[in-house]
Design a binder for these strands. Structure first.
Lengths: 339, 339
DNA sequence: AAATAATTTGAAATCGCTTTGAAGACGTGG
DNA sequence: CCACGTCTTCAAAGCGATTTCAAATTATTT
């Protein structure tokens, strides 16, 4: 059923029908009511592509999924979709085919230039992230989940990674730990850098010396957690506590402990960052895991809302949201043994 | 830059340019070469919405994300996107706002009727799934990941859940286990039903009696695994082995064992279904986890390919792919203690 | 009742591309 | 050299909505 047929069917002009359905003020309440009712009855729905061509809006937000595409993405997506469904906005998922920064930048360029989306979201930013000047140059609105130092001013929403890890590390120091392993995220990412800073600042403020052998970087996988934790634990003077970048990393650390016959919560402490998943909860771990917590789902939702505002004309440069992170202490962080 | 300007710029008609870029045979190789080169040089890209309006194609595949949206979704999405990027096809992700079958069916209807997609994918089907007659009625091509008994013939790709769990259970019986716990997926889902059947068939063929107290259903979360496993292990005659529906479930079971001072691989055995994740690998668990393995990513990729074929005209009813499942034995399955 | 203002409605142009049907350019055999 | 078939190219008509500008209707004022 097309607009023309539908309009003829109910005895109005296409113009009036279009206005009635799009909520323009020029149409009387009575007419609007009637048109809406008839649309439902006859099953008329505007062809989305015609609408988009006519309005110039794409009706979608672009998300590029890189090869490393983390497990948190599902939660993030859910948060976004929950917000966007109200505004009839879609999410367009595009992959990066091969690895590498250049391939990723090209993926953004493709999506942006083809006009498939009204705005994009930049995930896992780095300092001087090349995607930022790219999108700014193309005039494509965007929002960064995280932020990028050294780049031109841009809209971002980030969690307080530095503060979170600073508090987590300080907490461990309070418990008497002096050798604290840090298994962080991928090197170069802003969030990893900020966490490193939080970690070092905590050490410095308490007069502890930084030992590079106790710091590792890698993907948020159980394997990375396991391997690095085991390596560190097999050193002469091993860490008595760990700060982990993700729940998966923490799982790996737990297993490394067990493999070496160490008991978490007795022989060593662990604290991890938790993005909040329905399928893996820190509370249920044994021992329950102390965490720095911030909901990935909530971030996705808020970012979607902010993007809609940017599309509607809100100046992007003024949007900077820094979310605080909860520190939740559970059984996995205990005083240093024999301390 | 629009088609008209671009065509004028390089001294050709819009028709020729359009044909050259879309690979029609009416245009000479030399011209095509030149047009492509100029398009790159001048940065011309057809407006996607105009193309879609003109061709009637939506250029996207629809995926509806329900509230339960499992953690495997990321891998599935990656598999799909990897295939689709070649064909300039996008994935449109839509959420189900509130829970319930009706809300889910409505989400499918909205997407299908708005003409936003050329085909859809049905996830986590049930017997007599209402989404199947809906999409068939609307003439929207689709493919079911899994399958739906009792429904009209439809295109599907499924893994051999029954066979996998049959073999897994039989393997445990071979090792001398007679009380085998089964922590399955959500009740009512086809895959859960098939796994239940595989489990019961293995018991029956070996003359073991089915005990309903040893079977549980729930989401693929560590909490479900932990709670049910602990409950079963606290019974008088407890299971000596478990079949788990997912890696997360297995994590929960491992933890339940430790909470009760039981050692997996010595006091009890565990085997789980593994969808293959980069961030959580059965090999790295301690003890390493025996699994029935089938790649979610590969399934997503194959499904995308099949959907493109269906869109291109291949009859959907003839598409039935049943993928075998690997059985991979590791340390977590051992002979029954004292057996 | 006429004049004016306010409210509704509609005809037609527009969005940027694809594609049909027709014409121009080119080479070849008679 | 002409006629004819083969390649290329093009003008113009859609695709299905939105939106501008003008006209028609209704309400209000004088």
């Amino acid at each position: 059923m097309k607009l023309k047929e539908f309009a003829r069917e109910i005895g109005l002009s296409p113009t009036t029908v279009s206005r009635a359905l799009s909520g323009y003020p020029e149409v009387s309440a009575a007419t609007r009511q009637r048109v809406s009712a008839e649309a439902v009855r006859l099953g008329y729905r505007p062809n989305i592509n015609a609408v988009r061509l006519a309005t110039g809006r794409a009706g979608a937000i672009g998300l590029v999924m890189n090869q490393a595409g983390e497990f948190q993405l599902t939660e993030f997506l859910r948060g976004m979709t929950e917000q966007l469904v109200r505004d009839e906005m879609d999410i367009l998922v595009t992959p990066v085919v091969e690895d590498g920064t250049e391939a990723e930048v090209n993926a953004y360029r493709r999506v942006a230039e083809a006009g498939k989306v009204d705005a994009m979201i930049i995930l896992a930013p780095q300092p001087n992230d090349p995607r930022i000047p790219l999108l700014q140059g193309l005039g494509m609105p965007f929002l960064v989940h995280g932020r990028s130092e050294g780049s031109a001013p841009h809209a971002w929403l980030d969690i307080d990674n530095e503060g979170a890890i600073f508090r987590a590390t300080s907490h461990l120091i309070d418990l008497g730990h002096t050798r604290i392993g840090m298994i962080n995220g991928r090197k170069g990412m802003t969030f990893s850098l900020h966490r490193d800073i939080g970690y070092r600042r905590a050490l410095e403020e308490r007069g502890l010396t930084f030992d590079p052998r106790f710091v590792a970087h890698g993907n948020f996988t159980d394997e990375v957690g396991f391997t690095f934790a085991r390596d560190m634990l097999e050193q002469g003077l091993r860490p008595t506590a760990f700060v982990a970048g993700s729940m998966m990393t923490a799982l790996g650390i737990y297993r490394a402990a067990r493999a070496l016959d160490l008991v978490v919560g007795r022989d060593m402490s662990v604290i991890a960052h938790d993005d909040v998943f329905p399928y893996l909860t820190a509370d249920n771990m044994v021992p329950s895991l102390s965490t720095t917590r911030s909901s990935m789902r909530a971030a996705g939702g808020r970012i979607a809302t902010l993007l809609l505002q940017i599309i509607a004309g809100r100046p992007a440069e003024e949007i900077h949201e820094l979310w605080p992170v909860e520190l939740i202490l559970r059984e996995s962080t205990q005083p240093v043994p024999g301390g």
